[in-house]
Simulated scan of single mutants.
Amino acid sequence: RLLSAGMLLTILLGAATAMACFTDLSWWEAGILAAILAPTDAGLGQVIVNSPQVPARIRQALNVEAGLNDGLAVPFLMLFIALAAAIEEGAGTRGVLAHFLVEQIGYGTAIGLAIGLGGGLLMGLAQRRQWMTPELGQLGVVAMPLLCILAAEESGASMFIAAFVSGLAAQVGFPKVGRHSVEFTEGWGQLFNFFVFFLFGLLFARSWHDFTPAIMLYALLSLTVVRMLPVSVAVAGIGLSRASVLFLGWFGPRGLASIVLGLVYLEQQPNLPGETTIRLAVMATVLMSIVAHGLSAKPGIERYARSNEALPPDAPEHAAVVVPATH
């Protein structure tokens, strides 16, 4: 529900909110901004998904959503960039759509399947024959998305779609790819995460005087209404308590995923009129999220845990969850 209806409504509401806050954006540029800020950040939400005070079903929902929604947002982002650039250049949208479907999605999916299936089968064989130590499994997993990036650059495909599909396809021949990717993320990946946020802080320090009231208002709305209303609609009808719906809606932090998607947009160099507004809105939203979600995480967990004490044992929050096997 969060990855389908929730995410589509978030992008739609985010674009509509951007049009209401900014006068210099077209609808496609507003869609670009909404797609960049739609994914939630697994790193900033780590304290939530690791807390035993939060029901396992709620933790898993937030964890899986943050792990998948950045890849799902990429096709929307690339499509909006292509359409906005085509309109700015006076080109027809039909040719842009065909080019987008063939190159960005078609080639990206083909590259991801080839590298994921081939790499997964080779790594699975190496593990069964004991040709590879367990520690090197982490490097093998990291090598596959890097190969996707190289191949995508040469073919004009979307590197993120290729890497996303590759990660899914690798599980066919190497079921432990998920465990190794988590190990890398919790080790070296965390270092890279901090490094990116350090660079982000430097960029923010250089641009803080450019943040207008409209930029800050959009950042606030993006973290509240634009996130929380779609979540409440998406989970309606499954019996979650009001506290659970509020908890799911609020703890959708924006962080590394939005920074990376913002860099993808800037790397495309579409030279759109609203580029400055998009860049500043993304920076303000991410910074506000870091502060607001960081300060509210611990008290939010404790208050939510107290509200759950009154729930009956058969409440949906306490339903058993299936954790994928890693062995």
Rank of each mutant, 00 (worst) to 15 (best):
16 A>E: 05
16 A>R: 11
17 T>G: 13
17 T>F: 15
18 A>H: 02
18 A>E: 04
19 M>S: 13
19 M>A: 14
19 M>T: 07
20 A>Y: 06
21 C>G: 00
21 C>K: 02
22 F>W: 03
22 F>N: 02
22 F>K: 05
22 F>D: 01
25 L>P: 09
25 L>I: 08
25 L>F: 06
25 L>C: 09
28 W>H: 12
28 W>M: 11
28 W>C: 04
29 E>Q: 14
29 E>N: 03
29 E>H: 11
30 A>F: 05
30 A>Q: 04
32 I>R: 03
32 I>Q: 03
32 I>K: 02
33 L>D: 01
33 L>K: 06
34 A>E: 11
34 A>S: 15
34 A>Y: 09
35 A>S: 15
35 A>T: 14
36 I>D: 09
37 L>E: 12
37 L>Y: 12
39 P>M: 12
39 P>G: 08
40 T>H: 02
40 T>I: 11
42 A>L: 15
42 A>T: 09
43 G>A: 15
43 G>E: 01
43 G>L: 11
43 G>C: 01
43 G>M: 05
44 L>P: 01
44 L>G: 01
45 G>H: 09
46 Q>I: 02
46 Q>C: 00
48 I>W: 05
49 V>W: 08
50 N>R: 15
50 N>M: 06
51 S>I: 05
51 S>W: 08
53 Q>Y: 06
54 V>I: 14
54 V>C: 08
54 V>H: 06
54 V>P: 13
54 V>S: 07
54 V>R: 10
55 P>L: 10
55 P>M: 10
56 A>M: 12
57 R>I: 07
57 R>H: 07
58 I>T: 12
58 I>L: 13
58 I>R: 04
